[in-house]
Design a protein around this nucleic acid. Structure first.
Lengths: 324, 324
DNA sequence: TTGTACGCGTTATCAC
DNA sequence: GTGATAACGCGTACAA
């Protein structure tokens, strides 16, 4: 890789002039600019980002911290973030944390040492204090960490209501809820929406709410138990799509049919939901849009642009498919 | 962030000494080491990676270039790469290319300018020449680019044979193949394995091979056509799991049953396959293992360790589930 | 065993 | 309009 010095020599000017041409600032004669540009061409010169970063204390790089990229929600988010960032001249570092405090702290340090410009984070365990220490803009997605950290979430409670109400509308008379983990806020919110819709129903029992871990195995087991104990359940609202798919499996295992005997609705709107059989009805989050907004907001923050809002509570959408 | 200079002042030594204790090389008195360490503690000093990179011309960062992280094969690969890299002190930059030559070239440039230490790449379009220009170690995964670039692939032909043979074993007498895109080598290899198993069968027709794009929609359409035209097909080997799921959908649409009327087998072993209904029988690649090996190999290359092999052709495994 | 001084490739400030 | 030159923070000859 050629350096700015070599370009300067080639063009018979000083490095300062080359720098001016590259960054397009300060006065420079048209004549000399041409010469410099030719030198840049012929040496195939590319500015060294590392040297630039050292001087500017920024790296045109952002971090994306997620629990686990293998969780189907995150690839779409990551894709959106990466698309948007790269369009705006930023590069993305991928961090999987498993929500493990040590891994998170480790990554925070690494990112700091690399002069990261900003961070997009999905985490329940990270504290506002740790984030402040970073001293760079941070945007949280899918989960709130603190009021004064820019956040992009969806209307989970409304979504929970929407899902439950829809099950009622299509005729379900005993609706259970497969709740997500208790320590995750959105799981409780979705559950809240469910409760608001059913707590006045004569048939409602607290036992109709059963907790899973936002993954399939536990959802299968939970559903199995639920339906064995309460065979007249005819509708299940699962806290996320993976659990909904697990629920469908359990229903089938018990020799019942989806949606005829039991209707199932999920939450998230991951791609997987379309691939399931029967195709999953779900409350879809605008996942790509969330990633796009997070990246845009973060980069506006980094570049100190005027910001309109730093808190987005996006709407969810009922996507009717075959499982209801 | 404190700098090495501040630490030096705090400890009453020179920066050189501080550098020595940080990097643990050169002589340094136990006494002074203690003092320096205390200063580091009290200032919460972290070495500046950017300055380090500038000096060392390396960044403890690798690139991971994939067509699209939303494609279910890649999250697991990415997770493996990131796990392994971070364990070894490296950070991962995520690059989605859509196999678009321009995006690839753009990323190559960016990575170069960031003193990337190495690159793991999945691509059909990238040429050996472009890769050489990078001047850093590169490992390709899932697809071969050139004989002299370290590569990790699986035995696609053997896998194709294995899938087809299994369908025969379980009694299928008219087996079709949903082939992947013609420009992707592994699609042709898998198809090859299929042909080897069926070309001597009296019932075999070239028409039993039909091309899809490694995604669901085209697979559904293709299967639909296939089964309409040749209703006696009772087994389908799909080039990847997504297409297999599409095939299952099409079979259902036609009012037939999987596996009773038509058995379906996929290829890849993505997580999605377990979530499908019926659960998908597939030829599983050791995806995580491939990512792990790629990262390990790459980092060995970067650190100029002794390398045993630079070409791995891994075995695939028949995973029997409900779709056959 | 420790310190001085230079270089890594840029950018920005200040003379000219 | 252009050119020296001092940072940016670190690692390492070389001298002491």
């Amino acid at each position: 890789m050629a350096t700015i010095k070599e370009v300067a020599k080639e063009a018979g000017v000083s490095v300062a002039t080359v720098s001016r041409v590259i960054n397009n600032n300060g006065y420079v004669n048209d004549e000399t600019r041409k010469r410099v540009e030719k030198a840049i061409q012929s040496l195939n010169y590319q500015p060294n980002d590392v040297a630039r970063s050292l001087f500017k204390k920024q790296s045109q790089t952002i971090g994306l911290m997620v629990p686990d990229i293998m969780n189907p929600f995150f690839p779409e988010l990551a894709r959106a973030v990466e698309d948007t960032a790269s369009k705006l001249g930023y590069t993305v570092i991928l961090c999987n944390t498993d929500e493990d405090i040590e891994k998170e702290q480790m990554y925070l340090n690494t990112l700091l040492r690399k002069y990261i410009d900003g961070l997009i984070v999905v985490s329940n365990t990270l504290t506002a204090k740790q984030i402040k220490r970073l001293n760079v803009p941070v945007v949280t997605v899918d989960r709130e960490i603190s009021k004064d950290i820019p956040t992009i979430i969806v209307q989970n409670t409304a979504g929970g209501r929407m899902a439950t109400r829809y099950l009622k509308e299509i005729g379900c008379e005993r609706i259970a809820h497969l709740k997500g983990p208790d320590h995750i806020r959105n799981a409780n919110e979705r559950c809240c929406g469910y409760k608001e819709e059913v707590h006045n129903e004569p048939w409602f029992k607290e036992d109709y709410i059963i907790e899973g871990h936002y993954e399939m195995e536990s959802a299968i087991k939970a559903t199995y138990q639920l339906l064995t104990r309460y065979p007249d359940i005819d509708g299940i609202f699962a806290g996320n799509d993976i659990m909904a798919i697990g629920a469908i499996k359990a229903v089938h295992q018990l020799g019942k049919k989806v949606p005829d005997d039991v209707a199932v609705i999920g939450f998230d709107g991951i791609a997987l939901a379309k691939a399931a059989t029967p195709e999953l009805t779900t409350i879809a989050q605008p996942i790509y849009e969330m990633g796009r907004m997070a990246a845009n907001l973060l980069i506006d923050l980094i570049e100190k642009k005027k910001i309109e809002k730093t808190f987005y509570n996006l709407e969810v959408e009922l996507v009717k498919r075959q499982s209801t």
